[in-house]
């Protein structure tokens, strides 16, 4: 319902003593996102994955066995069982249940994906914001540093970080987080540079705002959509990077289940027991796909131009 206005404020005052509830931006976003079937599918898959990861993690904390088998329990007598009713995805070379291991691996992949993105996002946004707002020499120094990092393939850079930091899950997270800082810094800097020239930012300065408040209150909220989209897509590449490091044997150390690590260890059996590779591969693909679908959907939902239609 559109209330009608009059240019005479007195009439308006009489007509409407009520206060309208602000239209939530999140609600508008959700309405648009809902129309994009692929994004909804992505969101649905991510929801399931998150549920699995959370259940596995909580049951582990409480010391309960919720998975069909202990994912790390090796029983050489049961190695290379083909998928059947007891072992849905079969067993690996050490006789561990693949289904349990893949569910267990969800936890690690999502955890690494989210935390690595959180690291690169925080540092990247700060760098990008400083570079854009300060400009001049600060800008040059920060952005050239970012360019140097971008010039090296990210997986090589991650391996180099791992070499310096050592093996292990925590180090993998840091390495993956560090290598994608430049992407966020660049994207944030670009959006801030365009938003900064808007008159409402000028108005904020004229009314006496301090620089930090202008950035937090007037600039960042208007570039947040770009950052959210980038972060969602970033999770998918972080998941992929984790798998790559695991495949190279640099990520999570045995016996913990990690999809890339599982792929790496099974690659000798690609012909004799293909199911030991296929299922982790599918798990990685589905996760990456889900985040990509959601990211693309969000990009459309957050773009005011597409919202009009």
């Amino acid at each position: 319902m559109e209330p009608t206005y009059s240019s005479n404020p007195d009439e308006n005052l009489q007509a409407a003593e009520y206060v309208e509830k602000p239209e939530s931006q999140l609600k508008v976003m959700w309405e648009t996102l809902r129309l994009n079937k692929a994004a909804v599918a992505g969101l649905f898959i991510i929801g399931i994955l998150a549920l699995i990861a959370l259940t596995v993690w909580l049951s582990e904390l409480m010391g309960k066995q919720i998975l069909p088998y202990d994912p790390n329990y090796a029983d050489m007598t049961k190695s290379f069982i083909k998928p059947n009713a007891q072992h849905w995805f079969g067993t690996d070379q050490l006789g561990r249940d693949m289904f349990s291991r893949i569910l267990d691996g969800t936890k690690i992949s999502l955890f690494v994906g989210v935390t690595a993105v959180a690291i690169s996002l925080t540092i990247g946004v700060i760098f990008g914001a400083i570079a854009a707002y300060r400009g001049g020499k600060t800008d040059t120094v920060i952005m050239r540093l970012m360019d140097m990092m971008l010039a090296i393939p990210s997986i090589l850079l991650a391996i180099a970080f791992m070499a310096a930091l050592g093996k292990g899950l925590d180090k993998a997270i840091i390495a993956i987080g560090l290598v994608s800082i430049p992407e966020y810094a660049r994207i944030v800097r670009g959006s801030i540079l365009s938003v900064k020239e808007n008159d409402y930012v000028h108005a904020a300065k004229i009314m006496g705002n301090k620089t930090r408040r202008i950035i937090y209150k007037h600039i960042l909220p208007n570039v947040i959509s770009v950052i959210v989209v980038r972060a969602t897509l970033g999770i998918s590449s972080a998941v992929l990077d984790t798998a790559a490091l695991g495949f190279l044997g640099l990520g999570v150390q045995p016996p913990f289940a990690e999809w890339g690590d599982m792929l790496g260890r099974a690659r000798g059996f690609i012909f004799s027991a293909p199911y030991t590779l296929i299922f982790p591969g599918i798990a990685i693909t589905i996760t990456v796909l889900a985040f990509n679908l959601l990211g693309d959907g969000l990009r459309d939902a957050l773009d005011p131009k597409s919202r009009i239609k």
Binding site: Y5, N12, A15, A16, P22, E23, Q25
Partner: peptide, 8 residues
């Protein structure tokens, strides 16, 4: 009008 203050 006063009720318009919560609009974007």
């Amino acid at each position: 009008a006063r009720h318009q203050r919560n609009r974007y």
